[in-house]
């Protein structure tokens, strides 16, 4: 099992009319990896991620995610992945507990299993006394941690994180990455997009998209060596400078 790639794409393409948002990308993500998916705004990251998570139907190419085909088995993919989007995606007007119950319920958790998962989640986040509070009243950092945990309530093998740390302070970001590491240690594969290059350093492997294509893909160390750069920032600049697409 561990030898088999959890995400596998071959010339995966998505066009909107004449515009090719994602242009023949081919890559593999192995189980347990923290795969950083980088690129400037408009490079096609979110589109690629939406195809892989079953939100968008690709125009051409091939891709399989957690062993299912993105063209035909998107419903099976949805059951087996977690997804946390750029925008905060819990219900503000529901309590912590109600959000957990709702999303847990949608993923098919019932009765004791749901209660157990809920108790464990609250314990891990130390939110036991806040469980009856509305999500709206939590600080952003907590919301994002909760959102991440809720995205994994059904214990998926793969989680997509779309700019999960946008707009939070450095301390919360650090804590958030600790949670990501913890999940990865438990065997969950993490597919994460980010604009923070320090976060790219935390990834086991990184791909950088420029104008819908993958311009480079390797471990952060190997990329820095190849481009003779001090850090991922420089690597990113070197690659993204040539981009033709803007915002």
């Amino acid at each position: 099992m561990s030898k088999e790639a959890i995400i596998k794409t071959n010339d995966l393409t998505k066009s909107f009319g004449a515009f090719t948002a994602v242009d023949k990308i081919t890559f593999e993500v192995m189980p347990g990896e923290i795969f950083g998916f980088l690129g400037a705004n408009g490079a096609g990251k979110t589109t690629a991620m939406k195809m892989l998570s079953g939100l968008l139907i690709p125009t051409s190419g091939k891709a399989s995610v957690v062993g299912f085909d993105v063209f035909k088995q998107s419903e099976m993919i949805k059951k087996n992945i977690g997804y946390m989007s750029q925008k905060f995606s819990l219900y503000d007007d529901l309590t912590v507990e109600e959000n957990i119950a709702f999303f847990g319920g949608i993923y098919g958790l019932r009765g004791d299993v749901l209660e157990h998962a809920q108790a464990e989640l609250l314990q891990r986040l130390q939110l036991m006394d806040q469980s009856k509070k509305l999500v709206a009243s939590l600080p952003l950092g907590w919301k994002q941690k909760l959102s991440f945990s809720v995205a994994m309530i059904h214990k998926p093998r793969l989680v997509f994180l779309d700019e999960p740390t946008g707009g939070v302070d450095p301390i919360t970001r650090r804590q958030f990455w600790e949670m990501i590491y913890e999940a990865a240690e438990n065997g969950v594969t993490i597919f994460v997009t980010t604009h923070y290059m320090d976060e790219a350093e935390y990834c086991s492997r990184v791909s950088i998209m420029v104008d819908g294509k993958i311009a480079a893909m390797d471990t952060p160390r190997a990329l820095k060596d190849r481009f003779g750069a001090k850090n991922m920032d420089e690597v990113f600049y070197t690659l993204a400078r040539g981009a033709k697409r803007g915002e």
Binding site: S53, L55, K78, K79, K87, S89, L90, F103, I106, F160
Partner: peptide, 8 residues
């Protein structure tokens, strides 16, 4: 969007 990625 969150609902759309769930099996619902």
């Amino acid at each position: 969007e969150q609902i759309n990625v769930t099996p619902l």
